[in-house]
């Protein structure tokens, strides 16, 4: 099929077809996977950073001082958001496994999202001095 705006719009439609109809339960699961995989990646980085302690206290401190610069504090906030969402949605899934609130799954998803945003916001507020120092 030759290129035209019509084919382009149909391809866009194809993408839309896969994701537009999905609902909160799908987003909850997708975000759980996304944050889960991201956190596994972070875990290995985290262990690698801590293992610099084997090279001596000075090496550890040099690395850690860099990792506490404002840029990394901002990244830490993303980390906190990922951990919070994964934990909160984990509780949501545990409730379903116990047979609780299965009918209220959408509401619970939005509560997870709201709490993630609010608590990350509070953590961000208290981290402001670290982001804007020096």
């Amino acid at each position: 099929m030759a290129f035209s705006f019509r084919t382009l719009s149909l391809h866009a439609g194809n993408f839309q077809d896969r994701y537009s109809g999905t609902r909160s339960g799908w987003w909850a699961w997708f975000l759980q996977r996304l944050t889960g995989v991201a956190l596994v990646g972070y875990l290995f980085l985290h262990i690698a950073v801590i293992s610099t302690a084997r090279a001596g206290a000075d090496t550890f401190d040099t690395v850690l001082i860099i990792l506490q610069k404002p840029f990394f504090v901002v990244l830490d906030l993303f980390l906190i958001a990922a951990v919070l969402y994964h934990a909160l949605n984990g509780v949501r899934v545990l409730l379903f496994d116990a047979g609780i609130a299965i009918k209220r799954q959408a509401l619970l998803f939005w509560i997870c999202m709201l709490l993630t945003i609010v608590i990350t916001g509070v953590a961000g507020y208290f981290s402001l001095p670290l982001i804007f120092r020096g």
Binding site: A57, F60, Q68
Partner: peptide, 19 residues
């Protein structure tokens, strides 16, 4: 990340995490 935050902000402590 948070228990030592006050000390860092007030300058009693240089960083949150050191050896």
């Amino acid at each position: 990340h948070f228990s030592g935050l006050g000390d860092v902000v007030r300058g009693h402590q240089e960083e949150l995490v050191l050896f």
